[in-house]
Amino acid sequence: MSSTLEKYFVPEPSRFPIFGSAALLLIGAGAAMWLNRVSPGSWMVAAGFATLIYMLFGWFGQVVRESEGGKYGAQVDRSFRWSMGWFIFSEVMFFAAFFGVLFYVRVLALPELGSGKSAMLWDGFKSAWPNAGPYAEEAFTPMAAWGIPAINTAILLSSGVTLTWAHWGLLKGARGQLINGLALTVLLGVIFLCLQAYEYHHAYAEMNLTLASGIYGSTFFMLTGFHGMHVTIGATMLIVILARSIKGHFTAERHFAFEAVAWYWHFVDVVWLFLFVVVYWL
């Protein structure tokens, strides 16, 4: 048995949690006021996001300085890994709820409503997907899989390859490969977001596919929109990791921040594969 025990790093008291709490309060209260046309609402939301950005830069910057200062040992590394693992699990459950809604509507609700109970619904009801519901004023065109969605699928899969290539470069000490792989991954993520923005514009302007297009429109934009938000978050984290790599951070032995972002990005890739099959293809 070792005669020495590893010291567990205990950080100093931090002011950042209170800033995070204040940011969430401002965003929530401001959004409620904004939706109800109370004048300070939009300003409160803006102040909330500004406070949140300050908190994120300050708190994560402090963690980076502590990590680069050699204050973290194996126990802290295990804590970070467990924390990131549970965070990704919570994100899995987040998307599972939305996929569950789509499954319930398509596999359970529509067939049940079409089995002799359509008289309770609206004239012209058909137990078929996609379904616009009774309130859609004009017909819409469902989003096809073979076009921008298929291109975006290839882009995200390619980004997983470039990120893995960057990881190999880090493990073998090839700093150039690490930086180039990360830069390519960020570029692919940005291209994905630009194509998704174009797809949304095309849906609204030319296909009459909007959030008001019944259950199809709401589930389509809910699932793809939240995924786009996660791609944005992942690309932002990759930019931070890229900047740190350029500054010379990370070694082959100690690079959990890189691994954590890579886990998150691969999770985003896998979710998109499910989205492509279930939302666009089937």
Rank of each mutant, 00 (worst) to 15 (best):
W122N: 07
W122K: 09
G124N: 14
G124I: 13
F125P: 04
S127W: 10
A128H: 11
A128K: 13
A128G: 12
P130I: 10
P130A: 12
N131G: 08
A132T: 14
G133R: 04
G133N: 02
P134H: 10
P134M: 11
Y135P: 11
Y135Q: 14
A136D: 13
E137W: 14
A139F: 15
A139K: 15
F140N: 09
A144I: 10
A144C: 09
A145S: 11
G147H: 05
I148M: 00
I148L: 06
A150N: 07
I151V: 12
I151L: 11
I151M: 08
N152H: 09
T153G: 03
A154H: 08
I155Q: 00
L157G: 00
L157I: 06
S159Q: 02
S159W: 00
G160K: 01
V161Y: 05
T162C: 09
L163P: 02
W165D: 07
W168N: 13
G169M: 10
L170M: 15
L171E: 13
L171F: 11
A174S: 15
R175F: 08
R175M: 10
R175A: 13
G176V: 12
Q177T: 11
L178V: 04
I179E: 02
A183G: 03
A183E: 02
A183L: 03
T185H: 03
L187C: 09
L188M: 14
L188D: 01
G189N: 02
I191Q: 03
L193A: 07
C194S: 12
L195S: 08
L195P: 01
A197N: 04
Y198M: 06
E199H: 05
Y200I: 15
H201Q: 15
